[in-house]
């Protein structure tokens, strides 16, 4: 069943812009990205949108729908009333390029600041071995499609441009956690996470978890465990005492601080 959808789309670039109203014919079962594509095909040939897979897997079509960070290709029109106006804007945390397209290079800079895994020596037969239970926890974080919606919603940078310098953001906290939980990695990233990545800036208000299209438990399974690991290193007298008198957790042996 086709109907006329009222769309309000942000048009403009870095010098300015505003919300503009359109009416587009859509049918039931379509998603917001379909409506925008029809708008582009029939009325606004120059509308800039970034997209690729239309299947929620490439992470390109991130935007904000009615003020909430969403993948446009995964936001169904059936979630809204047919007479409701749907407002689509670019992500409001990153510099806008044009219309719905933003410059997400902040995230690439942050990725470069994160040292990659440094594996220890191989076993005698030239292989490396890991047990399934030891790698399982990190596998959740590998589901990340780098849509950067979590980075977009995080109030630390969304509401404070000046924090961008000292804060890596939730997408990279899951990377820190993944590597810190890695059974073979020899880097100890706890200091780096606390200092350079600004883990302490996060106040665990969980918006990143709320918006993640992959359903990754960013706060509970990555950020809080990382915060606890930082506490182990710095704020737990029992751990400190254990190290002093030689009853240390053997689990961290062979790791060097980066």
């Amino acid at each position: 069943m086709a109907y006329d959808l009222k769309l309000r789309v942000w048009r403009g670039d870095r010098d300015g812009g505003d919300l503009q109203d359109y009416t587009v014919e859509v049918s039931e079962g379509e998603v917001v990205l379909d409506a925008l594509h029809r708008l582009q095909a029939t009325q606004t040939g120059d509308l800039a949108i970034r997209w690729n897979c239309k299947a929620g897997k490439c992470g390109s079509c991130s935007a904000e729908v009615n003020g909430r960070p969403r993948l446009m290709c995964m936001t169904r029109l059936s979630d809204f009333e047919p007479e409701e106006t749907i407002t689509v804007t670019p992500m409001r945390t990153f510099p806008v390029i044009r219309d719905l397209v933003t410059d997400v290079s902040f995230n690439y800079r942050k990725a470069r600041e994160l040292p990659y895994a440094e594996l220890g020596p191989r076993d005698a037969d030239g292989k490396r071995r890991m047990m399934q239970v030891d790698v399982e926890r990190g596998q959740e974080f590998r589901k990340c499609i780098e849509c950067f919606l979590c980075q977009d919603v995080c109030h630390v940078v969304r509401d404070h441009e000046d924090n961008k310098q000292h804060f890596a953001g939730p997408r990279f906290f899951i990377r820190y956690a993944e590597l810190d939980m890695h059974p073979l990695d020899t880097h100890d990233r706890r200091k780096l996470a606390q200092e350079a990545a600004g883990l302490g800036m996060c106040n665990i208000t969980k918006c990143c978890t709320e918006v993640c299209p992959e359903g990754i438990h960013i706060t509970d399974n990555a950020i809080i465990p990382m915060k606890e690991r930082v506490v182990d290193r710095k704020y737990d007298p029992l751990v400190w005492l254990g190290n002093k008198i030689g009853i240390r957790n053997k689990d961290n042996e062979g790791r060097a601080e980066v």
Binding site: W10, G12, G17, D18, L19, R92, V96, R158, E161, D162
Partner: peptide, 11 residues
């Protein structure tokens, strides 16, 4: 300094 800072989409 936040969502209305200069480089962001003007809303």
């Amino acid at each position: 300094h936040g969502v209305t800072s200069p480089t962001r989409a003007r809303i």
